[in-house]
């Protein structure tokens, strides 16, 4: 590697990216430096984004919450706006990596790394997160599910960076549930994860639900059919049993070092039963 840049202003960044078409961009470095060490990547030029203060912090207006892509996981956990409205994200962040990793890693980095096991991703999918992608002359928006294309693959051209994540404040959900099944509690890559937003009516019927699973496909998976099917169903073992079968049919897990596909399929469905604790 012959060059490392740390731009502090967007204009400086665009110039560096123009002049170095092979440059690899990183934020917290918690994934990239591991890959450098194991020699999976050997970039000649790195651009570290950590000094771009414009892309840090959380803001809100009447309708939306805006999270700068370079906001660290710890900053999000301590942020009053996120603590108030985005419990689903705080539940996931508490299980991401370890405290030092959360001091370094950023929301934008977790998205662009695009691991199917990325802890913030399933919550962002069910929050219908929109991503703002900046380049020298323009800004575009994309829903997260069309931005992430596969493991480690995102719709980001050279000269573009993920700058902000935008989440609508409505509709409100009473239940924010995130569960991660891993080999241990800290520093574990998930074997299966499930994020849920849900409202339950006073007669224990599911009135509104969004569900997404991590680590059981090439990207986070969300199934509109299952969400639709569950609306109006009682929040009981019987009420959920058919959906569990549907989930086990639809997920596309693989065997790897952490678990077998068969185990992941079984658990992905059965995680739905955890929602029973919210029954009324």
């Amino acid at each position: 590697m012959s060059k490392v840049f740390m731009p502090a202003q967007p204009d400086e960044l665009w110039g560096i990216l123009d002049e170095n078409p092979e440059a690899v961009v990183y934020a917290g470095g918690t994934d990239l430096l591991v890959r450098l060490r194991s020699r999976f990547t050997k970039p000649d030029c790195l651009v570290c984004l950590e000094r771009l203060d414009d892309l840090k912090g959380v803001k809100a207006d009447d309708d939306d919450i805006f999270i700068g892509a370079l906001t660290t996981h710890r900053e999000m956990l301590n942020d009053p706006i996120i603590q108030k409205d985005l419990h689903i994200l705080t539940h996931a962040l508490k299980q991401l990596g370890s405290p030092p990793i959360r001091n370094m890693g950023t929301l934008g980095g977790n998205i662009v790394t695009a691991s199917p096991a990325g802890d913030t991703l399933a919550p962002l999918y069910i929050l219908n997160a929109q991503l703002e992608i900046g380049s020298r002359n323009s800004t575009r928006r994309a829903p997260i599910e069309s931005f992430i294309l596969g493991p480690g693959k995102v719709d980001l051209a050279h000269g573009e960076i993920l700058s902000r994540v935008v989440v609508r404040k409505v509709p409100k959900f009473e239940v924010h549930h995130y569960e991660k099944v891993g080999k241990r509690n800290a520093l574990a890559c998930s074997v299966v994860s499930m994020a849920t937003l849900m409202n339950v009516s006073s007669n224990n019927l599911i009135s509104n639900i969004r569900l997404a699973w991590g680590s059981v496909g090439p990207t986070v998976l969300r199934f509109g059919d299952i969400e639709h099917f569950l609306v109006g169903k009682p929040l009981t073992v019987e009420g959920l049993s058919e959906a569990i079968n549907m989930i086990q049919e639809l997920v596309k897990p693989i065997d790897d070092i952490r678990a077998t596909a068969c185990y992941r399929r079984e658990v992905a469905g059965r995680l739905l039963l955890r929602l029973l604790k919210y029954s009324v």
């Binding site: 490392v4 470095g29 918690t30 430096l33 591991v34 060490r37 790195l46 570290c48 405290p99 030092p100 990793i101 001091n103 370094m104």
Partner: peptide, 8 residues
Amino acid sequence: VRLSCLML
């Protein structure tokens, strides 16, 4: 606290 093995 940060990890000095993951910083340039």
